[in-house]
C-alpha cells in the first residue's frame, strides 16, 4: 500500500474526523439470511461511523454466547463466504462509511487468502479483523497480500498485552488498534471499573501511532462514554445482536440513538 492509498482508505479518513467514532458489529445472515444490506444501510443512516460485518464461523473461540449463537443461526440460515460477497457486491452504491469484515481465519483460508482479499477490494471493503490470525503469522505470511489489495488489518490488544508487544503491533498497524477492554470473550462484562480506566490511560500515555478503538463490554451510552474518554472510538457487538434478536431489523435507529 502506498502512503496515498493508505490515506485514502475510508478507515483512515474516518479516524481523521474530530469526533469519537461509533462502530457496530453484526453477524451477517442474522437474524435472517437476506438482511445484510438493510442492516448496513440503516446503521449508516442512524449515524454510525464504521461497521464490522461478521462472517459467521462454526467455532468462534473469542466470542461469548450471544455472538456464537448468532453465528450458529446465520450458518443454519445458509450464510456462506460466497453469499456474503454476493450480497455486498453493490454496497458501495449506497454506503460510504468504512466497512470491515470480521471473521475467523479458516473460512478465509478455504476461500483462498488472496482471492478473499481481491474480492474485498472489488466490493470496497476497507479492512479485516481476524482474531485468530496472530500478528507474527500475518507479518511473515500475509501482510504483503493484504496490502496489495489495499486492506487494513486490525490487531487486538488486551490488558495483558506487554508494552513491547503493543509497540510491535503498533508498528505493523496501518489503521487502528482494537483495544479489548478486559480479559474476556465478547459480551461478558457489564460496566467499566478502575481497572479499565487505568488500562485505558496507560495505553493513551503510550502515544501510539495507531488510534485505539475499544471493544468488548460496551453496551450503552455510559460504557461508550467511558471507553471513548481516551480512545478514539468504541465498538458495540453483542448488545446490538441482542437488540436485533428482540426487535428485528426495523428499529436499528432506536438502538443507535440510545448510545450517543
Amino acid at each position: 500500500m502506498t502512503i496515498n492509498e493508505l490515506l485514502m482508505n475510508r478507515i483512515n479518513t474516518a479516524l481523521e474526523q474530530d469526533k469519537k467514532l461509533l462502530s457496530i458489529y453484526f453477524t451477517a445472515g442474522y437474524p435472517s439470511l437476506h438482511n445484510t444490506k438493510k442492516v448496513i444501510q440503516d446503521l449508516e443512516k442512524s449515524g454510525v461511523d464504521m461497521i464490522e460485518i461478521g462472517l459467521p464461523f462454526s467455532d468462534p473461540l473469542a466470542d461469548g454466547p450471544t455472538i456464537q449463537e448468532s453465528s450458529t443461526v446465520a450458518l443454519k440460515n445458509g450464510m456462506t463466504t460466497k453469499l456474503l460477497f454476493e450480497q455486498l457486491k453493490d454496497i458501495r452504491e449506497s454506503v460510504n462509511i468504512p466497512l470491515i469484515i470480521m471473521g475467523y481465519f479458516n473460512p478465509m483460508m478455504q476461500y483462498g487468502v488472496e482471492a478473499f482479499c481481491a474480492k474485498c477490494q472489488e466490493i470496497g471493503i476497507d479492512g479485516l479483523i481476524i482474531p485468530d490470525l496472530p500478528v507474527a503469522e500475518y507479518h511473515e505470511q500475509y501482510q504483503e497480500t493484504f496490502e496489495k489489495y489495499g486492506l487494513i488489518n486490525v490487531f487486538l490488544i488486551t490488558p495483558q498485552t506487554s508494552e513491547e508487544r503493543i509497540r510491535f503491533i503498533d508498528s505493523v498497524s496501518n489503521g487502528f488498534i482494537y483495544m479489548v477492554s478486559s480479559a474476556s470473550v465478547t459480551g461478558s462484562t457489564s460496566g467499566f471499573g478502575n481497572t479499565q480506566e487505568t488500562y485505558f490511560e496507560r495505553i493513551a500515555n503510550m502515544n501510539l501511532k495507531a488510534s485505539q478503538i475499544v471493544g468488548f463490554g460496551i453496551s450503552n451510552n455510559e460504557t461508550f462514554t467511558q471507553a471513548t474518554k481516551t480512545a478514539k472510538g468504541a465498538i458495540i457487538g453483542s448488545a446490538f445482536i441482542k437488540h436485533l434478536t428482540k426487535n428485528g431489523v426495523d428499529s436499528i435507529e432506536d438502538f443507535i440513538k440510545e448510545i450517543r
Binding site: 464461523f57 462454526s58 467455532d59 473461540l61 450458518l75 456462506t80 463466504t81 460466497k82 475467523y104 481465519f105 479458516n106 473460512p107 478465509m108 483460508m109 478455504q110 476461500y111 485468530d132
Partner: peptide, 22 residues
C-alpha cells in the same frame, strides 16, 4: 480432511467447502 485451522493449529480437519468445521 483438508488443511485448515482448528483450536489454534494448522492441520488436517473435517470441514465444509466454506471452512465451517463439521
Amino acid at each position: 480432511g483438508k488443511e485448515g485451522i482448528i483450536h489454534g493449529c494448522k492441520t488436517l480437519l473435517m470441514q465444509t467447502p466454506d471452512g465451517q468445521i463439521t
